[in-house]
Each structure stands twice: as C-alpha cells, then as structure tokens.
C-alpha cells in the first residue's frame, strides 16, 4: 500500500493544491460527528469556489 505522501505525490499539481485547501476547510468541522446542515452547505460552497479558482480558463 502507498504511503500518504506517495498518494499525494501521485496526484496532479492542481489536485494537490485543492486537497490542501479542502482539508483546511474540513479542519473547521473536525469534531462534528454530523456536520450541521448550514455548515455542510458552507463547506461545499467553499470547495466549489476553490475548484473554480483552480480551473479558470
């Protein structure tokens, strides 16, 4: 099995950049077992924005 760093290295540079940002967002809700629906929506919207910023043209 690959190590975590090997998994990350195998991803494209765009994916690596998005993963870091997505996990930073998710850290804010790390202690919730079930994320409240408003926070869930907020996280999804922020992830969409991260991806849109990464793929612009």
């Amino acid at each position: 099995m690959k190590t975590p760093s090997e998994v990350i290295k195998a991803a494209s540079p765009e994916a690596q950049s998005v993963i870091n940002k997505v996990l930073k967002i998710q850290q804010e809700g790390k202690h919730y077992r079930d994320l409240p629906s408003d926070l869930e929506r907020d996280f999804c919207e922020r992830i969409i924005k991260v991806i849109k910023d990464e793929v612009k043209v």
Binding site: I8, A11, E14, V18, I19, I51
Partner: peptide
C-alpha cells in the same frame, strides 16, 4: 478535477 481530488 473534483473527481480526481475525491479519488485522491
């Protein structure tokens, strides 16, 4: 890209 991120 979203799918690649999800899979990774």
């Amino acid at each position: 890209l979203a799918k690649e991120v999800a899979d990774t």
